[in-house]
Design a binder for these strands. Structure first.
Length: 173
DNA sequence: GGGACGATTGAA
DNA sequence: TCAATCGTCCCA
């Protein structure tokens, strides 16, 4: 039986939460009552003010302030003027962290999955534990995964751009 | 107020 | 290799 992930799941360190999101079911419920259910296949961790790849590294701004809130909230932002990025806030207000959802079944790539799921700026700060239009369910699957450096953050320097904080679900065989 | 740029994508 | 496209952030 699937069950919605609760606050205690999200309010842990991002390096624990990120890989555990792999294989979980992301549910998007639309106004017409229909739902789209996809499996999370690829994520990245962004951790705190020291991580030069993390938006929080330059302090709190109007855009990233939700990362400084408690885990379980949605952080979305527009990139390149055309793609919404979907993130899940983790930890507590003491530590700004988030998981970028980079891939789901049916859409490879963070910009494509938000198009598929019709996620935009109106989801900023949405509570995944309470929302009736987006949440994540545990389906009991224990996922195998590989790690690699995060994508598209060369500007973060030789150390932070190479930290293996991208987690990719291993394909079943 | 102005300018550079981005956790991307798809086409040339 | 390069354009699309615009909000955010930094500097003046």
């Amino acid at each position: 039986m699937n069950s919605r992930l609760n606050h205690s799941f999200y309010r842990r360190d991002v390096l624990e939460v990120a890989p555990q999101l792999l294989g979980k079911t992301l549910v998007r419920r639309f106004p017409d009552g229909n739902s789209l259910r996809v499996t999370i296949t690829e994520v990245e961790a962004y951790k705190g003010t020291d991580d030069l790849g993390c938006h929080a590294s330059r302090g709190m701004t109007q855009r990233n302030r939700v990362m400084f809130d408690n885990g379980g909230l949605v952080y979305v932002y527009l990139i390149y003027g055309m793609y919404w990025m979907l993130n899940v806030v983790t930890s507590t207000h003491s530590e700004p962290q988030a998981v970028l959802i980079r891939g789901v079944t049916g859409a490879e790539g963070p910009g494509k999955l938000t198009r598929l799921l019709k996620i935009d700026g109106s989801f900023y700060g949405e509570d995944l534990v309470e929302s009736n239009r987006i949440w994540i369910e545990d389906n009991g699957i224990k996922a195998d995964y590989i790690t690699t450096p995060r994508i598209g953050i060369d500007y973060a320097g030789p150390y932070w751009s190479k930290v293996p904080w991208r987690f990719v679900l291993k394909s079943q065989s």
